[in-house]
Structure formats: C-alpha cells, structure tokens
Write a protein that binds this DNA or RNA. Structure first.
Length: 823
RNA sequence: GCCGGCGUGGUGAAACUGGUAGACGCAGCGGACUCAAAAUCCGCCGGGGGCGACUCCAUGUCGGUUCGAUUCCGACCGCCGGCACCA
C-alpha cells in the first residue's frame, strides 16, 4: 500500500545533502544574470519566532524560484548581534555578552534556521559583533569624520533612563523608548552625529525612483524627512545690534506679525532679558518648561504658554515694533528656534494671542467674506488677497509669497531657505555591547581619529557589567587610557559605542565579499551583486533601518566604493503573524513555538502553511487547523504520486500529442498560474491553491483507472507538480524528484514552461445575461464567432422568455465569454 | 488635523486591465471503508422563499457612471498604520 511520508527522515537527509554538495553556494559569474534576495537579518535573541519563519519562508521561495529560472542567486544570512539584550543578560545572569550572543547564534543557526531548509549560502554568514565586521564600522566612521559627515556637538539629546543611553530621534516613539517603553527625557550631552541631513534632498527626491517599494513606506520616509521651503528673515532687536532670525513658510503674512516667540533654550534669551524687570519671571518659566520630559513637552494637547521677555524687535518690512515672548511650543531644534507670530493666519499664534490679549491683524483677506480681526474665532488659513501689507496690497497671497521673498532677498533682510524635519543621526551610545567609536582625545591635539593601521579598536572583554553608573567602557582604565596617535602624549579613548543601527546600515554590502580584509567590501564583487533585487522584512523598519541604509549607501558611493544610489530595488514588507487577533507575544500567552511545529509537522508544512494562509504583505492569522490542512495536502501529494510511480517511472512525459487531454490541460494551466502568481506580487497563497487544484484533478483523473495514454500525461503532471512545489516544500520535492529517477538536485532544475496551445479549450462556456443578470449558460465550440454566439444566446429558451417576442434593445458580446441581452 | 492602507460567507481568503461573487483551505454536515475509532476517499456547504424547475437579496453605508460595479467616481461610517505645536 501507500508508503507514508516520513518528513523527519526526508528533511534531515536533504539538509545534509545540500550542505555536502554546497548546493546554495553563490559565486560571481558575469555570464549569468544575478539575483540578490535578502531578508532582514535577525537579532540573536536566543530563539526564532513565527515572524522569522514567515519572513525567511517568503525569501526562500523567491530565491529558489529565481534559481530555477536560471538566475545566479545570492541569498545570504547573518546576525545583527550587537545590542542591549546581551548586556542585560550579562547583568542578570553573569554571562559575558559575547558568550551569550555567540551561543545564541550557534543555537539559532544550527538548531533552528537549518531545520527550516532555507537555501542560504552559509559561507557568507556575517556577524556584526565580531571584529572582522565592526572594524569596518570604525573605518567608515573615520572616512566620514574626515569628510565632516561624522561630527561631535553638545546638544539636547533623547535620554532613556532605563536603558541609560541616548536615543536617536527615530528611536523615540510617542515620547517613549522604542525598546523598553520608558519615558524619554532630554539631556545636554556631547555626542557624535552622522550628518544625514546632508543627504536629505537626495533621500527625499530619490523616493520617486523607488518604484518597487510599497507606497506607504515611501510616504513614511517622505514624512520623516519633512521638507519645508520658506524664508529666513532678520528682525533687529530694539536698542541692540543683535538680530533675531526667524524661519517662515508664510512670507505673505509678514505684515501681520504682532509679536515674536522664541524657544526657552534660545541662546539670545539671556541677552534679551538682561536688566529687564521681567527677567526673574522669564527664568522661572524657562526652568519649569525645561524640566518637563520630551513626551509632555511635545504633546500637542499641552497648553500653549509663554511669558513676555520685556524686549522688542523691529519688523523689517514695516518697521513696526513687536514684543518678544518666550513660548513653550517653540522648538529650538527646528528652524532658528524663533518664530514670527501672525495670529490672524496661524492657529497656534491665534490661541496664544487670545490667551495673552495680543493684537490680531488680518493681512490675507477672505474672498468669500471679509474678516474682522475682533470677531475671528480661529485663524484664517486659506488663500486670499494681501491687505494691510504696504506695497503688496491687492496681490493674491500665493504669488505674494514669492514677491515678498524676492523683496526680502533684494533688501538683504534675509534669504530663502529650506528646513528639514529630519535631524542628524545621533549615534553615541553609553553602552558596552557595540562598536567602539575610533576617536582619541588628546590634551594638545584634540579629537584625533584612530589611524587606519590601528583598527580595529577592540572591545575589551574584561569589563564589569553592573547596569549602574557610567558606561562600562568609561570604567575600564586599560581601555580608556592610551596615547595620542599624533603627538604620542597621554590621551584617552572615546568610551561611547555606536548605535547598532550603524551595523545594519551596510551589511548587505558585506555579504558580497564577507571575508574581505582590505576594505569593508570588494568593489568589483559589490558591483556584480548589488543592488539587492528583493528585500523582505517587517514594516517596523520603514523609517529607521531603511532610511539609514539608504543614507549609508550614498555615503559609500561618495567614498568611491560603490556605483549605485539605492541599496534595495524592491521591498516587500510582510505582515505580522498574529493569533487570536493579536500579535504573538509572551505577555499575551499566544506564542506558537516554531520548534514545536517543526517537530510535529516538519519544515515543509510550516513553510507551506505560512505561505498559504495569507498573501505576504498582509497579517497572517495563525491557525492550528490550517497547519493540519497544509500537512494533509503534502500527504495527499505523496499518496497520489506514489500510487502511480511504478506506472510512470521510465515513461516519457506527454508532449503536444496530449493536447486536448483534460489533465494535460490542467497541468499547463497550473504552470501558467503558479508562475504568474509568483512573478506578479508574490501571491504564494493563490499559487499554492492552484497546486491543490491540480492535485484534486489528478485524483479525479486517476480514479477511473489508467488507460493507454494516461501514464505519459500523469508523468508530465507529476513532474510539473514536483517542480512547482520545489520552492515551497523543498525537502518534499527533492525526495519525489529523486524517486522519479532524477540524479541531481531539484534546486537547480529548470522551472517548467507552459504550452500555450495546451491550455486552449475545445469548448467554451458563454454566460448569458439578461439586463446584467445571469440567466443561462451556453457550451459552444471554441472559436465560435461573436455573431454566432449572439444568435445562440437569442435562441436560448430562457432569453426568449424574457424577450417575450419583442426584439432586444441591445446585445453586448464579450468575446468567448459573455452575452448580455438588454430588453 | 494631514498622509497612506483596509472593510467580501461561520472562518483564512479568491476574483489578473469593469464581465458567472465566494476559487483553494479551515470549520461544519452527510456518505463510503471499519466490529469500532482514527486516518483516508467521495459529496454538500452565503442568506431568504419555493416540493420543484427556479426566484429574490447579498462584497461597510448612501448615491452616481455603465448594458453590466467587489473593481471606477462622490459623500459618509468603521478599523489599522505613519506624521503631528515643524512656524
């Protein structure tokens, strides 16, 4: 009887076979088209979860499919292995972060990922916490430092008290730490930054070229970069030579300025209040505002508050004297930290003016109904004609913006400028488990980059991790104390480490030549493999990692190492794996452990289910019964193939002579459908359902007993089914492939092609509608002319009934498909 | 508030450029095999009405365009995500 499919034996056997034969080793070969398929590399937390399984299953189907299509496929895997959890484990369990991390990697690689049968070239494994990788972080840092793209500045930074480290703006979500959820405070620190703003314009404009990216990711990137075009205008402070510079996107409202507001941190504040009777009140206000944490400070619901400084400035357009206030809503980081306030045409200024009884003057007149400043309930934000604006009166405000800007520039009162929401990327972290920043501070020479020959600056292994006090590196005397590379005098090392997002900003380049020891990567090899043709990962990196990686790609391009602008041509953001309507998490207790599924059902079933249950970009609802269904399907395939294997072995697959056979036709329809579903949008769920239909057809076909021509048709169906299944259930397909008498791996077999003539049906079913509703169906020979279809439809008894002897009003014929009779 | 996405059976989902709504699977129901169960195989499976051939209603809601709308347009409702005191 039917032999049962023993997944455990089969999967182990093929995993071993692939390793022995180095089936997935990738080598540069200019004679072949390359395909670089990449999944976002994991943090070695200790165990993989279902999200990983899904991510890698998707990437593996793409890789295996492209390989069978004859592409030279690069499909690597590695470890984003610096980061805080390793340090926390060290504090909690007394195990060194290095040991903890490397043990996790070994376990996840050998006991988990390898069991999934993923077609990785493991020779290219990249581990970011090892010196042969992170030395190149340091090397790139130095190149950036030399070019002014890495710099140090004293600034207010986001501080997570729980992680005891600085966070980049991208790592603060709703005022909370992205990792631990603590309320982020701000702190003034001397920190290293990467000048990502130097690439703001390019990062924004090239979003348009990323046609292979989901629209929502591009929108998020555009929002994050946040370009705004406007004018800087200098207001001279009364009784002073100082100028207060403001930024505005509404130069058309310059004549409506009735006061100014500056940020509590503004550097001119002290000078403004000096000797004024308001000084103490202002200082108290500033102190109170600055004590508030980031979340409270930037909450829009926070009431707008302010205090008059006692100082005045002069509006250079109309020479009017306007009071200068300090406002809690004015941000020092954006623009110039000072704004002109036009309550008539800005809602915030309007509320502020109402609260403190400051004057309101209309300068843009509503064409619908004249505005009365005293009666206004809210600011007027729409367009209109400029009024109360001296020489600009009567000009529509939109062209007025340019006219005022021209005037400002001509009179040298200010200049056009662009402001970005994007800030430079703060990369200093006061933590141990990261790349040491390769800088030495010397009393005489200042900050000196570590010379290239001295790289890597090794992370010392003998530090104590307590989780308290200063950064562990700052406590390590042997690390801290060194000599100046310039003057050989006593010096100290920078003890901050780099944000771990630096590591993941260029790892895709490292995969091209992972053992290169003269440069971060081999230029020629990168030129062959890059860009990544398909990148796959979670949406949570839409801004963070993807923006940083784009930035780094442009930096290494400008360093002359790489000839491309963008790292990832196509991006697939897969949905989350959820269960009972919620993301799997320990706290919710709805986690399904991949190990359990692998043991109970095997890798092919786990892969098949996660690919079948939903298209990749959508969330996937985990269902235990659904997994059973995938398992059953594989057994069904096993059974039908083995029922006929004796009869078809050695039989030549059917060719064109079998056209017209119903299984032969279904086979070729399936080849077409599966191929198109993979090519178009990676809709693996419908590809798998097409395979299920083919199998159902095979059961039906074979149930009547095997006739003369059937073995060849069955053979071609079985061959196609096995090949089409190979990317989804690779171990299973290899085993069948071998049983069918093949001697080489199915991984490099050719993807089947459909015979267009085989899918042409001899008969067509034409739907007959009356007034758009289906009333009948006609079976007609293929190739029946529209005219004949029409007369057949009109002769249909159902149609006659509706026509009731009268001629039809109109008849629409859709070729070979449908007739609609309008009565 | 601005931007993006999504609303389809009991359920996960299909339906490619407007042309048979619900493919395929899960759950459920019925049958075959079995002493019995499991496994497997076969069949049914949106809702209402009718013995029946049939018929009416159904893709968040209300309109529009069209011979024909899940698909296009407009308004609204709901959910998810991003940005948000950015001057």
């Amino acid at each position: 009887m039917d032999e049962r499919y023993d997944f455990k034996k089969v999967e182990e056997r093929w995993q071993q076979n692939w390793a022995e034969h180095r089936t997935f080793t990738a080598t540069e070969d200019p004679s072949k088209s390359k395909y670089y398929c990449l999944e976002m590399f994991p943090y070695p937390s200790g165990r993989i979860h279902m999200g990983h399984v899904r991510n890698y299953a998707i990437g593996d189907v793409v890789s295996r499919y492209k390989r069978m299509r004859g592409f030279n496929v690069l499909h690597p895997m590695g470890w984003d292995s610096f980061g805080l959890p390793a340090e926390n484990a060290a504090i909690k369990h007394g195990i060194h972060p290095s040991k903890w991390t490397l043990e996790n990697i070994a376990f996840m690689r050998d006991k988990q990922l390898k069991r999934l049968g993923l077609s990785y070239d493991w020779d290219r494994e990249v581990t970011t916490c090892l010196p042969d990788y992170y030395r190149w972080n340091q090397w790139i840092f130095i190149k950036m430092y030399e070019r002014g793209l890495a710099y140090k500045k004293l600034s207010y930074v986001n501080w997570c008290p729980s992680c005891a480290t600085v966070l980049a703006n991208e790592q603060v979500e709703d005022g909370l730490c992205w990792r631990c959820g603590s309320v982020v405070t701000h702190k003034e620190l001397d920190q290293w930054f990467f000048k990502i703003t130097a690439y703001a314009e390019e990062l924004l404009s090239q979003c348009d070229k990323l046609t292979g990216w989901p629209e929502r990711v591009l929108t998020m990137q555009r929002n994050w970069i946040g370009k705004s075009v406007g004018v800087e205008v200098d207001f001279v402070v009364e009784n002073s030579k100082e100028k207060l510079t403001i930024f505005t996107t509404r130069p058309d409202t310059l004549f409506g300025v009735t006061f100014m507001s500056i940020a509590p941190e503004h550097p001119m504040l002290e000078a403004l209040i000096k000797g004024k009777k308001q000084a103490d009140e202002v200082r108290a206000f500033v102190q109170r505002v600055m004590r508030e944490d980031k979340a409270a400070r930037t909450d829009e619901k926070q009431e707008k508050e302010g205090v008059f400084t006692g100082a005045y400035a002069v509006n250079p357009l109309n020479n009017e004297r306007v009071p200068i206030w300090v406002g809690n809503f004015v941000l020092m980081e954006y623009g110039t930290g000072a704004i002109m306030s036009v309550p008539s045409h800005d809602q915030r200024d309007f509320e502020f003016a109402k609260k403190y009884d400051l004057p309101i003057r209309v300068v843009i007149q509503n064409p619908e109904q004249d505005l009365d400043a005293a009666a206004m309930k809210e600011a007027y934000l729409a367009g209109g004609v400029m009024v109360n604006s001296g020489p600009f009166n009567g000009i529509p405000n939109v062209p007025g913006k340019d006219k005022v800007a021209d005037y400002v520039e001509k009179q040298k009162l200010g200049k056009r400028t662009v402001n970005w929401r994007l800030r430079d990327w703060g990369i200093s972290r006061q933590r141990y488990w990261g790349t040491p920043i390769p800088i030495i501070y010397c009393e005489k020479c200042g900050a000196v980059a570590v010379p290239e020959k001295d790289l890597p600056v090794l992370l010392p292994m003998d530090v104590e991790l307590t989780g308290k006090g200063r950064s562990p590196l700052a406590e390590s005397k042997s690390f801290r104390e060194t000599t100046c590379p310039k003057c050989a005098g006593a010096a100290r090392r920078e003890t901050d480490t780099m944000d771990t997002f630096v590591d993941s900003s260029w790892y895709f380049l490292r995969y091209c030549s992972p053992k290169e020891d003269k440069a971060p990567f081999d230029k020629k090899k990168a030129a062959y493999w890059m860009s990544v043709d398909q990148y796959i990962g979670g949406i949570e990196h839409a801004v963070l990692h993807l923006l940083y990686a784009r930035f780094f790609t442009k930096v290494v391009r400008d360093l002359g190492l790489f000839d491309g602008d963008e790292p990832f041509l196509n991006l697939l953001t897969q949905g989350m794996v959820i269960k009972d309507g919620a993301k799997m998490s320990k706290s919710k207790g709805n986690v399904v452990d991949p190990d359990f599924i692998l043991t109970k059902y095997g890798a092919d079933t786990a892969r098949l289910f996660s690919l079948f249950a939903a298209p990749p970009e959508r969330d996937l609802e985990w269902s235990d019964q659904g997994v059973d269904g995938a398992y059953r399907f594989l057994h069904r395939v096993w059974t039908i193939v083995h029922r006929h294997i004796a009869a078809v072995k050695g039989v030549k697959p059917a060719g064109p002579e079998a056209r017209g056979d119903r299984l032969y036709r279904k086979t070729h329809l399936t080849i077409k459908k599966v191929t198109e579903d993979i090519e178009r949008e990676f809709h693996f769920n419908t590809a798998i359902s097409a395979l299920m239909e083919l199998v159902n057809e095979m059961y039906d076909y074979a149930s009547g007993g095997v006739s003369d021509k059937q073995p060849a048709v069955l053979r071609s169906a079985i061959d196609a089914l096995t090949l089409l299944l190979a990317p989804f259930a690779p171990h299973f397909a290899e085993e069948l492939w071998e049983s069918l008498g093949n001697k080489t791996s199915i991984a490099h077999a050719s993807w089947p092609q459909h015979d267009p003539e085989a899918i042409v049906a001899s008969e067509i079913t034409v739907v007959v509608q009356v007034n758009g509703k289906v009333r009948s169906k006609l079976t007609l020979p293929a190739g029946t002319s529209d005219k004949d279809i029409e007369s057949a439809a009109l002769a249909d008894p159902k149609v006659k009934e509706y026509l009731n002897g009268k001629p039809p009003k109109k008849v629409i014929v859709v070729q070979g498909k449908l007739v609609n009779v309008v009565v």
